[in-house]
Design a protein around this nucleic acid. Structure first.
Lengths: 239, 239
DNA sequence: ATGGCGATAATGTATATACATGTTTTTGCC
DNA sequence: GGCAAAAACATGTATATACATTATCGCCAT
């Protein structure tokens, strides 16, 4: 059921303890055996037991306290790991042909609004792109993109008529932080036209801001027709 | 910037390598020093270097190949860890008063639709609840809940007039897998009435299915007014 | 050339050991 | 009895060592 890494000694012990915790046999608050006792029970060294307990603690399944021992953690927020894919990959995984159409590309100075969106300094130059991603010949998603030319100057010499900004950026610009914002909105007139949907339809909007070592990199807003797209995320405590 | 665990030796080394990778100094594909060389450079033992590289590999920042060495991984999908909180916690963190109103509570046999939603066996008994969560006295979110009475029989003796099903379940039922689905929809008439919003407004819908050791546990659909709620997730590669 | 085969090199796992760190419990003094 | 010093204890970190596993390279015979 797990990542079947129960090939190794500490893998087997880990799986064993995980099973007891997730099944409820060891409920939240239960104090599990000390490292030395685990080592004796499983006939291994303390270092091996330590490795297992350290991994359980990193996964958030247990909490460790010096002198007191290790305790099964209280289940906290239901977190989920949400994978936000490259759009071309996403479309192709639906077995549809992928298409891309650039609508506008515009180099300009950052407006006040841009600065708010991206945490830009006043007077920065940005590249603004609007593009439509197509699946099976029909509009799949609308992309509104801002690129900070101060941190990504090489974007200026790219016309984005064939390659999408996302694909360009991901392969060229290292990033170290991102923030996602997911919302439902009603389609404005221009959005509805570009996506070929009825006005006031519900749309799923995913906004992402990305930062690199040199500051803000890009802002992007993806707008999906609400009835045709869902984000799905699976989650298992302890990976 | 990190979890500032640069107190220990392997913590410092880890931070150092992370910085080089995230800054782009070591680009994707770059082969980093072998364990023994790292150990020499940092004046530590190979076990310590191994611990660091193992953690980097678990975080997905590097890929390790026997005999070849360790390489900076290609950035893949932009994944984000989305924390889906308890609603009461969420409301209170907005500095609003929290309220809860149960609308309906109904014990019945599972319909065909229920079975599809929850992967139930035919003929299972379920508890169906509809409730409204309030923030600052106004509707914040509509909850539609199904509980599988086969795996959570104790739910039958709970009337849920004061305690919300989510709060009840999280503290009592261990679970080991969950699936989230996030979508945008237009509000149907009954939803609009309960949430006191205009018909056909855009709403953000979060559905969650949860499984435990004994099979399906619960299905829940949260419907949020689209203009009043957004999911926000931050992400930093490597933790 | 080429196909196999063994040497080599790097990671993977496990152990024994040592000392550090931070809590709790016990001891011992006033 | 009260309180501070000391011991006991469990985890945290680090090292040295050993052997297993596996991919790669070069050599040699065909």
């Amino acid at each position: 059921m797990n990542t079947d890494k129960e090939k190794t000694l500490h893998g087997r012990i880990l799986g064993d303890l995980e099973r007891r915790i997730l099944s409820g046999e060891w409920p939240p608050g239960y104090r599990l055996p000390f490292e030395v006792d685990l080592a004796i029970q499983y006939g291994c060294s303390r270092m091996t037991a330590n490795k297992v307990l350290t991994q359980l603690a990193r996964a958030g399944l247990i909490e460790r306290r010096k002198k007191s021992g290790s305790f099964v953690a209280q289940p906290v927020a239901q977190s989920a790991v949400l994978e936000i894919h490259d759009i071309e990959t996403e479309v192709r995984s639906l077995n549809l042909s992928y298409g891309y159409r650039l609508e506008t590309r515009n180099r300009r100075m950052a407006t006040r609004q841009d600065c708010t969106l991206m945490e830009l300094a006043d007077g920065s130059a940005v590249l603004e792109c609007v593009a439509v991603h197509l699946a099976g010949g029909r509009p799949f998603c609308l992309e509104y993109r801002l690129i900070n030319l101060a941190t990504v100057p090489e974007a200026e010499s790219e016309d984005f008529s064939l390659i999408a900004p996302g694909a360009f950026l991901i392969s060229r610009v290292p990033w170290n932080a991102a923030e996602h914002r997911i919302q439902a909105v009603t389609a404005a007139a221009d959005v509805a036209t570009k996506l070929e949907i009825a006005r006031h339809s519900a749309c799923l909007v995913i906004e992402r801001r990305t930062w690199g070592a040199g500051g803000p990199v890009t802002f992007v807003r993806f707008t999906y027709p609400g009835d045709r797209h869902a984000l799905v995320a699976r989650f298992q405590p302890g990976g």
